[in-house]
């Protein structure tokens, strides 16, 4: 069984936010909801200032704190390492948000339209045609799913996630700088495993012991 993971090359990320937008489009995220961030921040002091970008998604940890604390079993970890929320089971207690050190979860108090009074074609897309986790509703917590609908559909068509675009998360496919990689962390021959090995990929907040499936390259 693979363990899906993502690698962000910080040297390549130019902070264009294409991943952010493509995630919103792919997953029908309503206004005010973000599963994909590129934080833009400065380090150093004038005249030695550096502008940095830090892309983040749900880290799909191997030992997810959110899974343990969820009182209803709404947070589920699949055998391939993808962690997702079953919207029908979530009660909106937000304990998972406390337990997530990456602030990767979002509570939808109410679903907002992008343009008050108008519903775009994108927002009007029928819910029954969307994947389950794309049917957003108020009062529950949601998060990045590594586009598991694309991964699953791709695998059913004998495609390889991380190589075939149709089987790869939208943010990875659409990144114009090719700063994102997706693949099987447990396969030493995969591109992600090779990058982590050769370029000393590291995890955020490793000391917390969650063992995230997202790695960063300096």
């Amino acid at each position: 069984m693979p363990r899906w993971g993502m690698v962000f090359d910080l040297k390549k990320c130019c902070g264009c936010q294409t991943c952010f937008i493509s995630c919103k489009i792919e997953n029908f995220l309503p206004a005010g909801m973000y599963w994909n961030h590129v934080y833009d921040y400065e380090t150093g002091e004038y005249p030695h200032v550096k502008r940095n970008f830090l892309p983040t998604v749900c880290m799909h940890c191997d030992e997810p704190g959110c899974l343990e604390v969820c009182p209803t079993g709404a947070t589920i970890k699949r055998e391939d390492g993808i962690v997702y929320v079953d919207y029908d089971k979530c009660i909106g207690c937000r304990y998972c948000m406390m337990a997530c050190p990456y602030k990767a979860r979002y509570f939808n108090d109410k679903i907002k339209n992008y343009y008050p009074g108008n519903i775009t074609v994108y927002e009007a897309f029928p819910k029954e045609l969307r994947a389950e986790f794309q049917r957003h509703e108020p009062g529950i917590v949601s998060k990045c799913t590594f586009c598991m609908h694309r991964v699953d559909r791709g695998l059913s068509l004998n495609l390889i996630p991380g190589i075939d675009p149709e089987a790869t998360p939208a943010c990875v496919v659409n990144c114009p700088a090719q700063a994102r990689y997706f693949g099987d962390l447990d396969d030493p021959e995969s591109e992600v495993a090779q990058l982590i090995s050769k370029r000393s990929g590291y995890q955020l907040q490793k000391h917390l012991g969650a063992d995230p499936s997202v790695y960063y390259l300096k």
């Binding site: 604390v69 209803t72 079993g73 709404a74 009660i91 108090d109």
Partner: peptide, 18 residues
């Protein structure tokens, strides 16, 4: 406080970890 108060009964289901 709950986002989905009518589903509160589901919170009885995972005392082993939560």
């Amino acid at each position: 406080y709950l986002g989905k108060p009518l589903r509160f009964w589901r919170a009885f289901l995972k005392p082993q970890t939560s």
